[in-house]
Design a protein around this nucleic acid. Sequence first.
DNA 1: AGGACGTTTCGGCCGTCGCCGAAGCGTTCC
DNA 2: GGAACGCTTCGGCGACGGCCGAAACGTCCT
Lengths: 231, 231
Amino acid sequence: MVSGNTLAEIAALIGDVARANILSALMDGRALTASELAWHSGVSPQTTSGHLAKLSEANLIAMTRQGRHRYYRLASPEVAQAIEALMSVASFGPKRHRPLGPKDEALRNARTCYDHLAGRLGIAVADALTEKNYIVLSESAGAVTNEGQRFLCDLGIDLQERRGHHRALCRTCLDWSERRPHLAGRLGAALCARMFELGWVERIKDSRALAVTPTGKSGLEEFFGITEQSS
Amino acid sequence: MVSGNTLAEIAALIGDVARANILSALMDGRALTASELAWHSGVSPQTTSGHLAKLSEANLIAMTRQGRHRYYRLASPEVAQAIEALMSVASFGPKRHRPLGPKDEALRNARTCYDHLAGRLGIAVADALTEKNYIVLSESAGAVTNEGQRFLCDLGIDLQERRGHHRALCRTCLDWSERRPHLAGRLGAALCARMFELGWVERIKDSRALAVTPTGKSGLEEFFGITEQSS
DNA sequence: AGGACGTTTCGGCCGTCGCCGAAGCGTTCC
DNA sequence: GGAACGCTTCGGCGACGGCCGAAACGTCCT
């Protein structure tokens, strides 16, 4: 046992169906209790507990106690990024697509990816900001323009760096369903958080999928010029 | 059962020590024969063959026959990115560092990451280009300036898009040893390739590590203002 | 043709790990 | 205090999958 965490060890942790389900469930950035995760994982609470212990041990997830509950969340944006990258690879392949039900359709339409927007909505937002010259996505990268700063400020978005945590302002993240980059980084997180605050989007029960509210619809049209991105 | 299935499958493939060794060996972007990979993987040729079949089946690697040899390579930059992201997560952790030998030190100094430069050299190049305003890395993203275009042209670097393959011009990639972004994308690949052409860097035997040649030393100083980045 | 070499296929062994039932520990509520 | 609840630990079962030896297939060389 020379090295602490090796590539194979980390990948093996993600490479179990139950644990992959757990991590997928945590990909929306929220913290969930052990029981909720047991539900998502598809195995018994005892087994889930074992999985959670292993994931914690390897620092893929972090835990905070709260009364008799234990809340688990992804340990860092890096973990989310690795999982997203794997999902991206996973959805390649010449495999036949499984028939996609309404749930899948909702996911493709709009969802959270760790702490930012993804799916068609995420893409539309990135496109709109680019279109209006608020951000410049030089290929898969991004910077916020001065007009962009103002616009975001008008929207009530604060891009101040959080304590210590050096986190990129504007990253892009390859969308596994759309195969195009959407906005991540502090900007992506702030946009997503603000849309929740404004009541533009709501979580769909038991899912990473999002629903755009009527308020959201008009807001997206007014501020972003996004009319309709649903299927 | 949403996307968890395939996520777990892919991760499980990477999550075996022998296969992880194979993929790591291929991370330098070259194509290797089955026997060479057997050597890297640490298991017998028969077993390696089985692993290679599984990796091919899942489209993580691709194969081309050449005489009685079969050359395997990573199937796509996306695969490389996913592995790099996993490595990044893997090297986190509060675990004690293993004592790093001279080989490890060489890797940290300069190496290839799929098809571009990484390690201290990769970081130094990214820093130098930023310093001289040839590229703008707005946080973790990047664009090439007009002066940059000229500079790269002078160096003999052609950034024309390859056939069909939409690939980002200037991506960044988190360096697992330095914890800072280095240049990836077409730009990173072109820079790396050109340095090989010019004889600035050479591969160290049986390793992803690179050695900077005397020519390279003066070239790096003249064109990039990089004096010494070795330990 | 024969032999060396690179690679794959087959068969069987064995360890690892995921799984659940039962039980234990800590917290909350009545 | 006692009961319900949330979560974890323990023990034992079962199976999936990685491993190698032996052998087959294809290619190249002389």
